[in-house]
């Protein structure tokens, strides 16, 4: 369980993380999504006690990271795959971490095997490809068999095989009941693995909700109508709006009408009834990617209510539903 409460980090005038509040629960994969520079890495560093928050709290299992008795056995993290001395062998790197964290040395060959680096264990890290370093970083995160796994952009630099391997690993870790917190700036990547999404933009919380809920909220399908008689059509459409099925009409950028809550057939029939001429009429599916970009760019806060309902659902049932 990772907890952020009103977490804030300022560097001089810039606010990297702005009053973030969220909980990351065990048993599911929580995707941490935001464009580059949104404050994802800083938030992770605050949670892991590397940076000091300007205000607010960052807790791991209810206490600050530095107060954990065996941090390496409770939390495993990959923050920066390049963060290894290039002159050290993969094995020596992990051995040093095991010794520092009070982890049995037999875990070193085990995790090397898990990430598929056994063959190159004695080679110096300086000669590793980015993908191999990424795997070594993941090996380091898994070393203490931790209940919480934090991965910052784990698929960066991996080839397709590697990406699929990480997806499988992340899924497996969550299914074993661990807390898995994975950041990415790619919507498409997170969409494939996450059960829950925490979205940030400009250091602020944009959304914290189960993935299906966000998809539903963001994928607003709409009907685009181009008509020389917008007023009667708008009036007629609004008359069809009811409490169960609200229909809203917004003017588009080029004078077209954007209709939400009605399908193209209905809009066409309504136009006919209203006597409005129709020049163009089609359905437009808003892409999730586009919605995410709009959301993070505008830093609109997603209503907290839906985030709460998602929290209450718990992880297991949700996963079965997928």
């Amino acid at each position: 369980m990772l907890t952020a409460r009103e977490l804030t980090k300022r560097y001089g005038e810039t606010t990297a993380v702005d009053t973030l509040t969220f909980d990351i629960h065990p048993g599911r994969v929580t995707g941490f999504l935001g464009p580059n520079g949104a404050g994802k890495s800083t938030t992770m560093r605050l949670l892991l006690g590397l940076d000091r928050p300007t205000s607010g709290k960052a807790l791991v299992n209810g206490r600050p990271y530095a107060d954990l008795p065996w941090p390496a056995r409770e939390v495993g993290a990959l923050l920066d795959a390049a963060a290894v001395h290039p002159g050290r062998s993969a094995r020596a790197h992990l051995l040093a971490l095991a010794r520092g964290g009070g982890i049995p040395q037999r875990r070193v060959p085990e995790v090397l095997d898990t990430v598929g680096l056994t063959e190159v264990a004695r080679r110096r890290v300086g000669g590793f490809s980015l993908g191999m370093r990424q795997r070594l970083g993941i090996a380091g995160a898994l070393l203490g068999d931790p209940g919480i796994v934090v991965l910052d952009e784990p698929v960066n630099g991996l080839d397709l095989d590697g990406v699929r391997w990480v997806r499988g690993l992340v899924r497996k870790l969550a299914d074993e009941g661990r807390t898995v917190f994975v950041s990415s700036h790619l919507m498409s990547e997170v969409q494939l693995v996450a059960d829950q999404l925490v979205v940030v933009g400009g250091g602020r919380l944009v959304a914290d909700a189960p993935l299906p809920e966000l998809i539903a909220a963001w994928s607003r399908t709409r009907v685009v109508v181009r008509t020389p008689d917008p007023d009667p059509l708008t009036a007629c459409l609004q008359r069809r709006s009811g409490p169960e099925r609200p229909v809203t009409v917004e003017p588009g950028a080029d004078g077209e009408l954007l209709v939400y809550g009605a399908d193209p057939e209905e809009v066409g029939d309504t136009a006919h009834a209203a006597g409005a001429r129709v020049h163009t009429l089609y359905r437009e599916e808003a892409s999730l990617e586009r919605a995410y970009l709009d959301l993070t760019e505008a830093e609109v806060r997603y209503p907290a209510a839906s985030g709460k309902s998602g929290t209450a659902q718990g992880g297991a049932g949700q996963r079965e539903g997928r």
């Binding site: 560093r45 892991l48 006690g49 590397l50 990271y65 530095a66 954990l68 941090p71 390496a72 939390v75 993290a77 923050l79 920066d80 390049a82 963060a83 290894v84 001395h85 290039p86 971490l97 520092g100 964290g101 380091g140």
Partner: peptide
């Protein structure tokens, strides 16, 4: 050297 190669993060994660 750990400030140059950022290994200090790994070290402080193991030993906060």
């Amino acid at each position: 050297n750990e400030y140059a190669n950022r290994g200090i993060t790994t070290t402080l994660l193991a030993v906060p």
